[in-house]
Design a protein around this nucleic acid. Structure first.
Lengths: 226, 226
DNA sequence: TTCGTCATGTAATGGGTTACATGATTAC
DNA sequence: GTAATCATGTAACCCATTACATGACGAA
C-alpha cells in the first residue's frame, strides 16, 4: 500500500494501458517518451509495480509468452514478468485521468499529465492547461516583484540568471496560450481506447495542435541505434 | 557531519560571504535570488546550518546586535541567531568555487554555480559554461535519436511535448553560446571580495554579459509588496 | 489582546537513488 | 567462452518535506 509516488503510478498505468510490458522495458519507455522530465531507477520502479499488483490494478504474467501477444515486448527476447492492466486498474487510471486538481499542474505532474492528453477528455485538458498557465503567471508575478525590490543589490550574473529564468517561464506561458487556443478551436475528440484500436485509422484529431516548423526536427537519416 | 546537500551548503556559504544573516532571512534570499531553481524549507536549512557550524565554517552570534553591524538583517527587528562566515569557511567556499567537476554543470548545481559567477574566476566560469553546454548537447542528441526511433508510435500530444522539451534545451544552448561568447570577449575580471567593498564603485565589468532588451523587465511602477 | 509575521527548531515520513546480488540470453 | 545487454530484485542510505512545537515582537 505504501511506496507510491503518484506520478510514477500514473505513468505506469498509462503505459500499460497501451500494451502489457515487463519492468525493464517499462523503464525505458518511462525515460524516453515521458522521461524528458523524469528518470526513474529500478529501485523505484520494481517496488512500485509490486504495490500496484497488490492493489489489484496489475497482474503479473510469468513464464512463456501468453497468447495475448504483447507486441513489441517479445520481439526476439522472451520477457520474464509481463505486467498487464486489470479491469479495475483501467478504471483507476480513468479516474486519475479525470482528476484536474491543483497538483495536476505542478512542475512534476504536468509533463506526465500532458503526455497522456491523448486519453484525456477535452474539458480536463483545458482545466489542466489553464491551471498550469495561471500557476506560471503567479510565479512570474512573484519573480517580477522580487526582482523589482532587489534589482540594485544584485550583480550582473545573478541578474542575467533571473532574466533567463523569467524568460523561460514566459516562453512556457506563450506555449500554453497556443495550446489553449487550438484546444478551443478543435472539437471534442477523446482518443479511442488505444488497446482496442487494432489497425483503425489513427489520423488523430485530438483537438488540433498548433503546427510548428524549424528546429527540433530529428534527422531522419540517422538510425544508427540498436 | 552528515546532513549536507552540497548545493545548499554552497549557497549558504556564498550568501553569508556577502554578509552575516540569520536563518530566516537566509531562506528568503535562497528562494528569491537563487531560488528560481530551488526552494528549501526550514527542516532542511536549520540542520544544515548546524552542521556547517560543527565544521567550523560558520559561527553563531546570539543575543543583542553585535558591533559588526550585519546590515539589512537588523532593520527594525532584532535577529536571534546571526550566522557569520569564519576564515576557514571562507577558505572552504573558495575551494568549492574553484572546483569545476562534472557535477558542476548538472541541472541542480548549475544554477547556483552561475549565481556566484561574480565571485568565480574566469577560467572556471568558462569550464562550467562549456561543460553545461556539452552536457545539454549530448542530451539533445539522445532525444533526437530516441525521437527518430519512436516518432511513428507517438500521438500528437506526446510529440508536441517532446518537441517543446527539445526546443527548451536548444534555447538554453543558444543562451550558453551567447554567454561563452561574451566571456571570451571580456577580459578576466574577478569581482572583488564583496565583504570588503564598502561604497566602492561597482559598475561591474564581470566579463561583459550580453545585453538583452524586451520581455522580462519588471514593471517599475508596481511596488505593492511588503 | 489578538493576529500576522518573524524566528527557531525537531520527529516522522516520503520519495527516490546507489550499490549490490543474481542470473538469463545474445552477439562475437 | 566471454562480453554486453537484458532482466529482476533488495537494503542501505540520502535529501528534503510536512507537520508539529515553541515563542518573541509589532501593529490593529
Amino acid at each position: 500500500m505504501s511506496r507510491r509516488s503518484g506520478i510514477l503510478e500514473f505513468a505506469v498505468l498509462g503505459l500499460l494501458r497501451e500494451s502489457p510490458m515487463h519492468g525493464y522495458e517499462l523503464r525505458k519507455r518511462l525515460n524516453t517518451s515521458l522521461g524528458v522530465f523524469r528518470a526513474f531507477s529500478y529501485g523505484t520502479l520494481y517496488p512500485c509495480l509490486k504495490s500496484l499488483v497488490a492493489n489489484g490494478w496489475l497482474i503479473e504474467e510469468t513464464g512463456g509468452a501468453p497468447e495475448g501477444a504483447p507486441a513489441a515486448a517479445l520481439t526476439g527476447r522472451r520477457a520474464k514478468i509481463v505486467y498487464r492492466l486489470t479491469a479495475s486498474g483501467k478504471e483507476h487510471f480513468e479516474e486519475l485521468l479525470a482528476h484536474s486538481g491543483p497538483d495536476a499542474w505542478e512542475d512534476e505532474h504536468f509533463g506526465v499529465r500532458f503526455a497522456f492528453f491523448g486519453q484525456t477528455s477535452r474539458d480536463v485538458r483545458m482545466r489542466v492547461l489553464e491551471g498550469r498557465r495561471s500557476r506560471l503567471e503567479e510565479r512570474l508575478e512573484k519573480m517580477r516583484t522580487s526582482l523589482a525590490r532587489t534589482r540594485e543589490r544584485l550583480d550582473d550574473y545573478t541578474l542575467e540568471l533571473q532574466r533567463h529564468g523569467m524568460e523561460s517561464v514566459e516562453r512556457e506561458v506563450r506555449w500554453l496560450n497556443e495550446l489553449i487556443e487550438s484546444e478551443r478551436a478543435g472539437r471534442d475528440q477523446r482518443a479511442p481506447d488505444p488497446a482496442e484500436q487494432g489497425e483503425k485509422d489513427q489520423s488523430g484529431d485530438t483537438g488540433g495542435l498548433p503546427r510548428h516548423r524549424g528546429g527540433s526536427r530529428p534527422d531522419p537519416s540517422d538510425d544508427t541505434t540498436t
